Amino acid sequence: MRTPYGFEPGCASRAFVRACVAMAIAAMPAASANAGGNFTLSSTDFSDGGKVGPRQIFNDAGCNGPNQSPGLTWRNAPTGTRSFAITIFDRDAPGRGWWHWAVANLPAQVTSLPENASASGALRKLGAIEARNDFNVDGYGGPCPPPGNPHRYVVTVYALRIDALPLAQGRPAALFDREISGSALASAQLTVTYGR
């Protein structure tokens, strides 16, 4: 039970207030502590709330795009970040949604990816690993929803508290997501749409 001021009962006396405040601050998630403001994600190819560009569209299943992963940049990662991970998820796909991309083990000093990092080999050079997406292909698989209403694609970068997730290249994206979520300090997102 907490007192009206949020302290535990043992912290209610003046002698313990300072110690309790210090403990509460130490227990706060690391995501609240960063050097330059909020953890943010931006893209040279996507704008939050905008539409997916033609270069990022999938190249199969009735779609004819170049299937290039988007260029991404993130800033103000929280203190304690030791690596990054990225996912792209279609929240409007039937059933459980659709995983388009999951990348993990990006070194902490990396704060951007160029367009087409998935297919170009840039991720391998960084030591990163990619999941098998729901098209059953390792790496990036761009949007290609069935004809009808546009779908929303959530692009998320995660700051992780560990250097590397215990995963291997080509494991299912849902497994990547579970491991990423368990090690995340903070995340930043943007959402884009695409329909045909």
Rank of each mutant, 00 (worst) to 15 (best):
P114F: 12
L113A: 05
A108K: 01
P107I: 04
R132Y: 05
A108S: 14
A128N: 02
G141H: 09
G127P: 03
F135W: 15
F135G: 00
R132T: 15
N136H: 15
S120Y: 11
L126C: 10
S118H: 04
D138M: 14
N136T: 08
T111R: 07
T111V: 10
E130Y: 06
P107N: 10
G139T: 11
S118Q: 12
N133R: 08
A119P: 06
N133I: 12
G121S: 10
S112G: 11
G139W: 06
A131F: 01
N105E: 10
S120N: 12
N133G: 09
N105H: 03
L123H: 11
G121T: 02
I129H: 02
A131R: 05
D138K: 13
A122M: 08
V137D: 09
C144E: 02
N136S: 14
A104L: 06
S112F: 00
Y140L: 09
G139E: 07
N105P: 03
Y140C: 06
A122D: 13
G139S: 02
N116E: 02
A128G: 05
G142S: 01
I129V: 14
G141M: 07
A122G: 09
I129Y: 01
F135D: 11
R132M: 15
R132H: 02
L123K: 02
R124K: 14
S118C: 03
A108W: 03
V110I: 13
F135S: 11
G127K: 05
G142K: 10
K125Q: 14
N136I: 10
E115R: 13
A104K: 04
